[in-house]
Computed example of a mutant assay.
Amino acid sequence: MSDMFDPLASLREAGLPVDQLSAAQREVLAGLTEEETAVVASVQRRLARAEAEPDAEVWAHDLKLL
């Protein structure tokens, strides 16, 4: 693992609303390994693609995944 790796920055770039999470939730995410972060980011990207599909079901505006 790189000394410069920042899980929160990586998750933010993947579209996770990390800045809207509680301090405790951000602390947990900040402790993720690069591999764990990649998995969470991958899931987020897949969810975003599914939401963007024209035939996707309507999502609740206040859906919270984390």
Rank of each mutant, 00 (worst) to 15 (best):
residue 1 M to L: 05
residue 1 M to F: 10
residue 2 S to C: 04
residue 2 S to K: 09
residue 2 S to T: 12
residue 3 D to R: 15
residue 3 D to G: 11
residue 4 M to Q: 11
residue 4 M to A: 12
residue 6 D to L: 02
residue 6 D to I: 07
residue 6 D to V: 08
residue 7 P to H: 02
residue 7 P to D: 05
residue 7 P to E: 03
residue 8 L to D: 00
residue 9 A to I: 06
residue 11 L to T: 06
residue 11 L to N: 03
residue 11 L to V: 08
residue 11 L to D: 02
residue 11 L to C: 06
residue 12 R to L: 07
residue 12 R to C: 04
residue 12 R to H: 10
residue 13 E to M: 10
residue 14 A to L: 10
residue 14 A to C: 11
residue 15 G to S: 10
residue 15 G to H: 12
residue 16 L to S: 03
residue 17 P to N: 13
residue 17 P to F: 05
residue 17 P to W: 02
residue 17 P to Q: 09
residue 18 V to K: 01
residue 18 V to M: 04
residue 18 V to D: 00
residue 18 V to R: 00
residue 19 D to E: 13
residue 21 L to W: 03
residue 21 L to M: 11
residue 21 L to S: 00
residue 22 S to T: 15
residue 22 S to E: 09
residue 22 S to I: 02
residue 22 S to Q: 04
residue 23 A to T: 15
residue 23 A to K: 01
residue 23 A to M: 05
residue 24 A to D: 15
residue 24 A to N: 11
residue 25 Q to F: 01
residue 25 Q to Y: 03
residue 26 R to T: 09
residue 26 R to M: 05
residue 26 R to L: 04
residue 28 V to D: 07
residue 28 V to T: 13
residue 29 L to G: 01
residue 29 L to Q: 03
residue 29 L to F: 11
residue 30 A to T: 03
residue 30 A to W: 00
residue 30 A to V: 03
residue 30 A to N: 09
residue 31 G to M: 03
residue 32 L to V: 04
residue 32 L to K: 06
residue 33 T to P: 09
residue 33 T to V: 14
residue 33 T to E: 02
residue 33 T to R: 01
residue 34 E to M: 12
residue 34 E to I: 07
residue 36 E to F: 01
residue 36 E to K: 02
residue 37 T to I: 06
residue 38 A to L: 10
residue 38 A to C: 00
residue 39 V to I: 15
residue 41 A to I: 15
residue 41 A to P: 10
residue 42 S to Q: 10
residue 44 Q to E: 14
residue 44 Q to W: 03
residue 46 R to G: 12
residue 46 R to E: 15
residue 46 R to A: 15
residue 47 L to T: 09
residue 47 L to H: 05
residue 48 A to W: 02
residue 48 A to G: 05
residue 48 A to C: 01
residue 49 R to E: 15
residue 49 R to L: 14
residue 49 R to G: 14
residue 50 A to M: 14
residue 51 E to N: 13
residue 51 E to D: 13
residue 52 A to K: 11
residue 53 E to P: 00
residue 54 P to F: 08
residue 54 P to D: 11
residue 56 A to C: 12
residue 56 A to D: 09
residue 56 A to L: 02
residue 56 A to I: 09
residue 56 A to Y: 01
residue 56 A to S: 15
residue 57 E to C: 09
residue 57 E to S: 14
residue 57 E to T: 14
residue 57 E to L: 14
residue 58 V to A: 06
residue 58 V to T: 13
residue 59 W to I: 12
residue 59 W to L: 06
residue 59 W to K: 06
residue 59 W to V: 15
residue 60 A to C: 09
residue 60 A to V: 10
residue 60 A to W: 03
residue 61 H to A: 12
residue 63 L to H: 02
residue 63 L to G: 01
residue 64 K to H: 05
residue 64 K to A: 06
residue 64 K to F: 08
residue 65 L to H: 06
residue 65 L to R: 08
residue 65 L to Y: 10
residue 66 L to N: 02
